[in-house]
């Protein structure tokens, strides 16, 4: 059978007396990464719903994406969200040198761009709703709104988080705990850009062009 032969020498280690130093920051960032993967599956569910509903029957007399969304405005939103992620990421370089100003500056700039992004998206949706294509009008519209608003809600939650990090960094500086949190926040923000490019290509461009 495959079981290991009992070989015991004087050198065989039996106990880890020194204790094992678990990498606290990596454990946290890995756990948070797993959360992001599950969040990606939430978007998978929404994309699947969107794909199923993306037909005239579900649109119930209302237009599909090509009659509702503007690809060029979407491109502007893409630039804004990339700019925001860029700011937060560059700000995080301050963690290398313990440069609080750079970290917080990056967060602030990223947060402002994020707010601009949300404002942009929400005002588009308002125009759509005012033109009689609100979320309650058809199954397709409900899916479209659900997808866009879920993404915007994520960004909004990220803004709350940014504000909270200002408080934490002011109070405890860039210690291990805050470093772990800032690394998670950076991932969270970058993740929003990844989701957005999928939305942009699939809903705005693919939906707009066929």
């Amino acid at each position: 059978m495959h079981s290991e032969k009992p070989t015991l020498t004087a050198k065989t280690a039996l106990w880890a007396y020194e204790g094992e130093e678990h990498d606290f920051i990596s454990t946290r960032t890995f756990g948070f990464w797993l959360y992001l993967l599950s969040d990606a599956l939430i978007f998978a569910g929404l994309f699947a719903s969107y794909a199923v509903m993306d037909n005239p029957m579900s649109a119930f007399g209302h237009p599909l994406a090509n009659g509702l969304l503007s690809a060029s405005r979407g491109l502007i939103q893409t630039f804004i969200v990339l700019g925001s992620v860029f700011s937060v990421s560059v700000g995080s370089l301050g963690l290398k040198t313990g440069n609080k100003g750079l970290v917080l500056g990056g967060l602030a700039a990223g947060g402002l761009l994020g707010a601009l992004f949300i404002w942009f998206g929400v005002s588009d949706l308002q125009v759509m709703a005012a033109a009689g294509n609100g979320p309650l009008e058809s199954g397709y519209l409900a899916c479209l709104y659900a997808l866009l608003i879920t993404h915007a809600l994520h960004m909004g939650f990220g803004l709350l988080w940014i504000v909270a990090m200002f408080v934490h960094v002011a109070r405890w500086g860039l210690d291990a705990m805050n470093t772990a949190r800032l690394l998670c926040l950076r991932m969270f923000w970058q993740f929003q850009a990844s989701v957005w490019v999928v939305i942009y290509v699939y809903v705005y461009l693919f939906g707009g062009a066929h």
Partner: peptide, 18 residues
């Protein structure tokens, strides 16, 4: 658990960004 005696600025995920 929270044993963080090490220097967070040296953490690989911090060092990695450029």
């Amino acid at each position: 658990m929270g044993t963080h005696h090490y220097d967070p600025t040296q953490h690989p995920e911090v060092r990695q960004g450029t």
